[in-house]
């Protein structure tokens, strides 16, 4: 099997893309679907972000499959300064189309009982739990599209990777038993 790394340049203009409910539908890239958002936090809220990190760590430890329906690869949360203000960056890489699963993400997050850390961003809709449209519009308004994405093992889904790892483990065990 040939696993051939690929890179994709992503044009800045979006006119050629199909328009979805929340704007242009970005294509799947060698790094799968995903989005990055960049937003200013409400001043002074930094400690809440760090507490949130501990909450998520504990939640996933307790319920390892809590985010499974979102078909994620990786999530990254960052805080960094620009001109004395603190900005937040969130990057998600996943296997589902953003437009089709926004409501599911909102339902899932509001169902965990963990409030989203997005509530500490300027302009985030307070009624996000019952207003997935408002959630999606905020995300889209703060989305910064990639101009280049790269995949060392391009286009593979998290489910395929997990299956391959399980298969490797099973084959290893079988070989051990044959000895």
């Amino acid at each position: 099997m040939d696993i051939r790394p690929q890179a994709m340049a992503i044009p800045a203009e979006t006119d050629h893309l199909d328009q979805g409910k929340y704007g242009p539908i970005y294509p799947k890239t060698p790094a799968c679907y995903g989005f990055s958002i960049l937003a200013k936090i409400i001043p002074g809220r930094e400690p809440i972000f760090h507490q949130y990190a501990k909450n998520i760590e504990a939640l996933v430890k307790e319920q390892p499959d809590v985010l499974a329906p979102l078909k994620l690869h990786y999530l990254r949360w960052l805080l960094f300064p620009i001109n004395g203000d603190t900005y937040f960056m969130y990057q998600g890489i996943f296997d589902t189309e953003f437009d089709k699963y926004t409501e599911d993400a909102v339902a899932l997050f509001s169902g965990t009982g963990v409030s989203t850390v997005f509530e500490n961003l300027e302009g985030f809709p307070k009624d996000w739990k019952t207003n997935p449209d408002g959630f999606a519009k905020f995300v889209r308004a703060h989305q910064v599209p990639s101009f280049l994405e790269y995949g060392e093992y391009p286009f593979f889904s998290a489910d395929e990777i997990k299956k391959a790892l399980k298969m490797k483990s099973a084959v290893t065990e079988m070989l051990d038993q044959l000895q």
């Binding site: 499959d65 499974a68 329906p69 979102l70 078909k71 296997d95 589902t96 089709k100 699963y101 409501e103 599911d104 339902a107 899932l108 169902g111």
Partner: peptide, 9 residues
């Protein structure tokens, strides 16, 4: 069943 997303919505 375990699927992508939340079936009830």
């Amino acid at each position: 069943a375990s699927i992508a997303g939340v079936a009830r919505i």
